[in-house]
Design a protein around this nucleic acid. Structure first.
Lengths: 138, 138
DNA sequence: TATTTATATACGCACTTTCGTATATTCGGC
DNA sequence: GCCGAATATACGAAAGTGCGTATATAAATA
């Protein structure tokens, strides 16, 4: 049933945080990675989980994959995303995520960010796992 | 997190159907059993799951256990139960459950049903697994 | 074309969930 | 106190989930 599948997507904190951020704006994986401060593989896996169940869409833009909430989510998903927004308003974790996103994008739309390069210096450098790990091996 | 725990409760069909019915009225296990047509142990297990997470309350009334939605569900649970009601309005399974409940109680409150005996003849007889299984063994 | 960057997938392990079988508990009536 | 009805709990198997390590792919660029 559609509703069950939606709730299965919602019962993980990382996925809730991703959906909260995507409700603000479409984002690439490295944006999510740097805001959530989770390893890339974890973010990708959760995005794959969401995509398999129709909770997000994915489009390639040059080297970046842009994830977004579906244009026509259907009534159940729509209702639950609204409900999620209500529930999340008072929660410090979700608020902080939104603040970081605002800081990262400075209010500019994703398209513009992509033109400038998706994740400039500080973003990649701020990842929780050492970036360019392969490059450091001789 | 509270929200996650709520969504974990919502991501099973049997539990959704139970919550849908409890949103109409407090009910005893045998009511749920006969409406859902699931084995007793399955219903009890899901009720235990819900109770552990504060999604339902339980009170004994003579030999019956009465389950109900909590009096003060808190904002997240309240929002999600409302959202669930929205999502469920158009679904035939949930509608049928409500119709069966209406038929079973004929609009009378649970208290009155309990006075008369919780689950009179036809209800227990309609269970999917043979009732009184132990009694049939010599 | 070789390398780097961004991202996805494969695989394995620990943990959780679902559900069935069997057994225990609790209450009311005899 | 015994029995039956209503309900709960224990336990084990099968499936699903979360996550880490390692590897693959795809685009950009030197």
């Amino acid at each position: 049933m559609r509703l069950i599948s939606i709730y299965k997507c919602l019962c993980d904190e990382t996925r809730l945080r991703i959906l909260n951020l995507l409700s603000v704006s479409p984002l690439c994986v490295c944006h999510l990675q740097s805001i959530l401060r989770k390893p890339q593989v974890k973010v990708s896996q959760h995005l794959a989980f969401l995509k398999e169940r129709g909770m997000v869409t994915r489009t390639r833009h040059q080297q970046w994959m842009i994830y977004a909430l579906p244009a026509s989510p259907g009534p159940e998903l729509d209702a639950n995303l609204r409900c999620l927004q209500d529930c999340v308003q008072s929660d410090p974790v979700f608020q902080a995520d939104r603040a970081k996103l605002q800081e990262l994008t400075a209010g500019r739309p994703v398209a513009m960010l992509l033109e400038e390069g998706c994740c400039p210096g500080p973003v990649s450098a701020a990842l929780p796992h050492a970036p360019n790990l392969n490059a450091q091996r001789p």
